[in-house]
Design a protein around this nucleic acid. Structure first.
Lengths: 142, 142
DNA sequence: CTTGAACCTCTATCTGCTGTAGCTTGTATC
DNA sequence: GATACAAGCTACAGCAGATAGAGGTTCAAG
């Protein structure tokens, strides 16, 4: 039987975060000692590791919920898991694209700044006037 | 005199967001009509445009606050604006790096999936076992 | 003068946690 | 068995950065 702190250490997850995952139904409700402390089995550790790893790959908690449901029913075809992963891949690719546009613009901004007074600062000038931008960047980098 | 809806349309900012910016002190408190509605000058529009453009380039509201302060005092040297922009550039570059590692891993995941049953789904398998990962990805893409 | 779009305030919600306060439990050591 | 104290517990507040809705008021065109 594992205490919550053990799961925490072994998965690199904050104790509060584990309790939070239970609260939102991502982790099953843990068994308790007579005194009310949570106790876990190895399978709970595996589930938590799955969640953390998915988070590291950028999946939302909702996507992870779907993936866990699939994982719990091993007889279905895995097309759905595949499509969730592809969706995530597309999102990551789009974010990269947007960030690269931002990077280009920021680079140009700082390259043109010659350290003169704020009055003629290129950085501030560009921020003031979007029309000076060379690239499109209409969405906020999320 | 411009109504809040006009600022909203001309900058692509939701009305609530403009009020939110006022609430947190990014926008100055607007003047009011006798009936209590906000009214703006062109300079407020410019300030809002500056904020939105900075947000599109990924600057945090705190950074924007600093940039606005600088912009309001045009006689100082612009080294500080420059360093804020450079910091932002570094952040963007790091995010791109992390996302590219994720992309690589996700690509491999979906490439190896052959549509068989969930039981042998590569996607789920990789999520279950971090040691199958080829790339490092220890931080969550933010 | 009437209509109705646009405005107002206030509060709640979202994502994904993280931190704090104040108290209780479990376990190792004496 | 007593004691110390790390680790657990609940409950609630807070972060960024908005966004949405309820329920009511104002402005401007016709």
């Amino acid at each position: 039987m594992l205490a919550i702190g053990t799961l925490s250490r072994r998965t690199g997850t904050k104790v509060q975060t584990i309790r939070y995952y239970e609260e939102i139904g991502l982790m099953n409700e843990a068994g308790r000692t007579a005194g009310g402390q949570r106790r876990y089995f190895e399978k709970d550790l595996d589930r938590l590791a799955f969640i953390r790893h998915s988070r590291q790959l950028g999946f939302s908690l909702d996507s992870i919920r779907e993936l866990l449901d699939l994982s719990d029913n091993p007889s279905q075809p895995c097309a759905e898991a595949d499509s969730i992963a592809r969706r995530q891949l597309r999102q990551v690719e789009q974010r990269i694209k947007r960030l690269q546009a931002l990077k280009k613009e920021l680079k140009r901004m700082v390259a043109e700044c010659d350290g003169e007074s704020v009055a003629e600062c290129k950085v501030l000038e560009v921020l003031r006037d979007h029309s000076e931008c060379l690239t499109e960047h209409d969405e906020i980098g999320a």
